[in-house]
Nucleic acid binder design. Sequence first.
DNA 1: ATGAGAATGAGAATCAATCGCAAACAGGGC
DNA 2: GCCCTGTTTGCGATTGATTCTCATTCTCAT
Lengths: 138, 138
Amino acid sequence: MRINRKQGEMKARPVTSQRRLLLSVIQEAERHLDAKELYRRASERNPNISLATVYRNLHVFEKQGLINERHLGQARCYYEMKRLGEHQHLVCEACGQVIEFESPLIRKLVAEVQRKNNFSVTKVELYLEGHCHKCKEL
Amino acid sequence: MRINRKQGEMKARPVTSQRRLLLSVIQEAERHLDAKELYRRASERNPNISLATVYRNLHVFEKQGLINERHLGQARCYYEMKRLGEHQHLVCEACGQVIEFESPLIRKLVAEVQRKNNFSVTKVELYLEGHCHKCKEL
DNA sequence: ATGAGAATGAGAATCAATCGCAAACAGGGC
DNA sequence: GCCCTGTTTGCGATTGATTCTCATTCTCAT
């Protein structure tokens, strides 16, 4: 369960107030944020924070494995805290609601793909789009 | 097996030479193209074609269900002819190679998600990233 | 052949994301 | 506590992809 040791020795990163702020905003968020929304929320508490800093730190957090970067349909990226239990997204084309789900089939599927292709998979992103029960009827 | 009738009556779209050209380039492509590459290839046969036309028609083709839009990791979109047998993508982080795969588990998974969430799924995009057997060793 | 509506080309506009650089900061050593 | 070195930050400029605008051209049913 080593945190960060030898083997890729992570250089100590200064803990800056911006970094702390950004991480708390992400943690407090109910769900995924995109960079702009994160910037907006962070700006409320530190009006000086720069959008570039937001992007830079998102990359840092991702590299550190603190957050996940997700693509929800559009080109824009969304970010969320890494949680236990990988989940995937189901989006309604019509009303835009995002449902999170998980299934043991995913692990099974990934295992199969890894085996068949001799790959070691590090990232799984399943994106389903469709119509929710409400929008189906319209 | 109706082609396009009542119920959403698709308005006739003029068949333009650009449209025809773009579609053949996409069909002749071995794999996914992004807009720029499509533009490059189309320009070889019609140097006047505009990048805007490429984008416009990609959207048209997608709406018509002729092509699929895929997101391969990065922000950029890739397009490919719709083929029988949905396939998904496995990308090596290191060397960038893209492997296509399919598995009956995907259909099963989608069925499960549809049932549990009372959704009707119209688009399935599974993106796996990792290291291929060659890059694992480096 | 004609007219109405749709599509095109070219460049401007938009939007997300990145970069370059000078100034400010964090953290270890003294 | 103070200094030094390497990081990080803010800012403005930049890139790159995609979309928009609009005058012109084209397709096709009549």
